[in-house]
Amino acid sequence: MHPNPDWPLYEIFVRARGGLDHKHVGSVHAADAAMALEHARDVYTRRLEGVSVWVVRSTDILASDPAEADALFEPARDKVYRHPTFYDIPKEVETL
């Protein structure tokens, strides 16, 4: 009994209903993309959880490195002027 090579891994994204983003829900193994769609449907939408599915080969995803999280995301922290709450607008000014 030698181990079979796995079918490739696909990451699955499901749109729960119209108007929402596709959201990552997990992965399936499949030999090809069409099969991955069918597997995603059977594994992740047995209870009307979705109206649309994306499948992406896991190896095609480049993820940011948590060790670089500081370099990537910290610089946004001190840009407080990007947020509307930064500005004090006199009460008299309406609808702004």
């Binding site: 181990p3 079979n4 090579p5 796995d6 997990g26 992965s27 399936v28 059977d42 594994v43 047995r46």
Partner: peptide, 25 residues
């Protein structure tokens, strides 16, 4: 559903750096 649960959980295990084939083995 149990098969589905197995699939979710293998999927979660694989995020830790082990393949489905190894797990089945």
């Amino acid at each position: 559903d149990e098969g589905g649960h197995g699939a979710y959980l293998y999927s979660a295990t694989e995020t830790l750096g082990i393949s489905r084939a190894e797990l089945i083995e």
